[in-house]
Structure formats: C-alpha cells, structure tokens
C-alpha cells in the first residue's frame, strides 16, 4: 500500500520523466562567442583558492533566481538579471567543464510545501510562464554533478549555492528523487557514486 507521499512522488516522477536537462544554445555567431568567452574568463578569475574543484559560487551573485523564457542563447545570458535553476545549472556545468572536469546534469525532485508552490505558481504566471515544474508540494530542480574520482561525483546546486548531500532525507527542501544524465560522456558510465549512494545513470531514483 503506497503512502500519499509515495503516490505524489510517483506522479511527479512520471510528470518530470520527459524533462531533459537545460542547455544553453549557441547561435554559432560572434554574439554568442563573445558572451561565452566572457563567461569562461570570468569563471577562471574567481578561482580564488586555485582549485578547479571550487564551486562557481560567483554565478549566483551575478544572477538572481526566478522565472525566465526558454530557449536561452549564450548571447542573452550576460544581459539577463534572472535565471532559473536550469540555466544556473547549465552555467555551472559549463564552468566546471571548461576547467577540464567531467560533469553531468543532475535532475532532482525536491519537497517543499503547497504554500510555497502557490507562491511560485503565481510568480511564474505573472511573467506569463508555465509552472509545469511544480507538482503539488514537489518541484523539479536542476544541479550539476562533478566527477571527483572513479565514478564518484559531488553535486553542486547553484541556486542555493551549496554542495548537495544525499544524507538529508525527508522534510522541507530536501531531495527525494534524482536522475544523473550521463549521456554524451565519452566513456560509458552506468552508475555514479554520490557519497554513499550508488545511482544508475539516466534513471530517476527515489532516494528518500
């Protein structure tokens, strides 16, 4: 017998299963070249302790979180004031990637409250945007996984400016399901280790 929470999660997983990780498009012209190069140079400037594994926390101080129109091209990025979690995650992955690290997009489902969901729904509606990333008290979220050892990843959440940990299970603002998208990685990676969790790639996994 499934609990209401399980049923809600199953429903959310089904709803978000066709979501693909956000990517920033490139016009293939000077406009995007300039923005992309600026972003890369800026990221290197902020490697304060010199470690390529340092979180690109500067991204969140450059852009606020909020709703935005998609698709997103590189040439739009610098002039936008607000980016959503998908754009922030895509930028973070790009920062780590250009430092020479292997990265994976991470899709998450996080639990908040219905009260929060109503607020977000209204804010998105005010901008004429779809709030299809909300499913009851569960929301779709994106982050970026960085390979730090053989199949071992850390997960950077640029929206909250924090390294996500799988250990917090249940409760407000915690991750309840996750999908690591390892497509496109040069070598085949079937499973990824996120601390003590072993997670098959490209599959939604309930972790809580």
């Amino acid at each position: 017998m499934l609990s209401d929470a399980d049923k809600e999660l199953n429903s959310a997983v089904e709803k978000f299963s066709h979501f693909i990780p956000s990517i920033i498009l490139h016009h293939g012209k000077d406009c995007c070249v300039m923005a992309h190069e600026w972003f890369k140079a800026l990221d290197i400037s902020f490697l304060i302790d010199g470690s390529i594994y340092s979180a690109p926390s500067w991204i969140r101080s450059q852009w606020k979180w909020g709703g935005m129109d998609w698709p997103l091209f590189w040439c739009q990025v610098p002039d936008l004031k607000t980016l959503d979690c998908g754009a922030l995650a895509a930028l973070s992955c790009e920062a780590f990637r250009q430092r020479g690290l292997s990265v994976f997009s991470v899709q998450l489902i996080q639990r908040f409250s219905l009260h929060d969901a109503y607020h977000w729904d209204r804010k998105w509606a005010e901008k004429g945007l779809l709030s299809n990333w909300i499913s009851g008290s569960l929301v779709y979220h994106e982050a970026c996984a960085v390979l730090i050892g053989p199949n071992q990843v850390r997960v950077w959440d640029p929206t909250d400016n924090t390294w996500l940990r799988p250990s917090q299970c249940g409760g407000y603002a915690t991750t309840v399901a996750v999908r690591f998208v390892a497509e496109g990685y040069p070598a085949k990676i079937d499973v990824l280790k996120w601390e003590y969790l072993v997670i098959p790639s490209n599959t939604w996994i309930k972790i809580c």
């Binding site: 000077d30 070249v33 190069e37 600026w38 140079a41 290197i44 490697l47 010199g50």
Partner: peptide
C-alpha cells in the same frame, strides 16, 4: 605570490577571450 600567479593565469584567459571574441 600564489594569488599573483593565479591572477597571471586569469589575465591570460582574458587575453584568450579577447582574441576569440
């Protein structure tokens, strides 16, 4: 000194960015 060398690398990256753009 360490920060200066990192700054040097960072400046080279800005040079690369200017070249590419």
């Amino acid at each position: 000194l360490q920060a200066w060398w990192r700054l040097f690398d960072s400046m080279l990256n800005w040079g690369k960015a200017i070249e590419a753009a």
